[in-house]
Amino acid sequence: MSNTVLRMEDLTMQFGGVVAVNNLSLEVNEGEIVALIGPNGAGKTTAFNCITGVYEPTNGQIFYRDEILVANYPQGKMKKLYAGENAGKYTKVVSRTPDQITRMGIARTFQNIRLFSSLTALENVLIAQHLHIRSNLFGATLLSQLSFVKSKARQEEEHMYQRARELLVEVGLEQYENEVSGSLPYGIQRRLEIARALATNPSLLLLDEPAAGMNPQETRALTDFIVEIKDRYKLSVFMIEHHMDLVMSISDRIYVLDFGKLIAHGTREEVQNNQRVIDAYLGVAEDA
């Protein structure tokens, strides 16, 4: 149990009358690459948004290591509306904002790239280090820009630049350092977004369709890249992906979601041969 990084228990997310995620339980262990797959609209991104604090789940708990990250149960007018399972099982409420969750060590990327598009690649990575800043506004304003005074704030600033440049070298983006991120090629933007997430110093990385819109060649490069950063930064990776070759080549375990419900989980082989998964993806013949 102690090597579980993320544990989701009976998570339900209901928007009005629509149950987007229904009673989802899953685990990500230390050093694993876990994939969450499913047809469009299955509720994958909603599950991600519950982990990262964008949404407050309607029912259920999420643990990060041994700490409750998010917990909720149906209250107020949701009490009557609630259509999920396990009502009444949970009585705790823990809610955190996305920035608090990132500070705890969970970083994410977005399905539709959300870089700070008019800023340079270097600035994007620098900003992601801001959450660890120690100097206050006054110290940083007065001292961090003055190279002739060796202050703590200045050292911190220099360290941030140094770390950001190192990171860009490590992910192979050093030649784009001063380019405006919005004008970079699509594949590079994807990579930069991952680099930016790494700059927050996470131990769990959530990738929301990292290969969306990529050609097979780019997807292969990305596959290697994910494994490489996982090993280098000792990460656990939890990703949503549609490219089956990517999912099947690197995931340790796979969860399959359909209409908000978990329909299968297990290793690649188990999932590949599961009849319910095949049905969900290919559809079931009417007369079968």
């Binding site: 996305p98 700070f116 900003i127 801001h130 959450l131």
Partner: peptide, 19 residues
């Protein structure tokens, strides 16, 4: 830089740990 990130994209800024 954190201010600029809020200008660029609030959701991304928050996801990068900016309060």
């Amino acid at each position: 830089r954190a201010f600029k990130s809020i200008r660029e994209d609030e959701i991304a800024a928050e996801a990068m740990g900016i309060n």
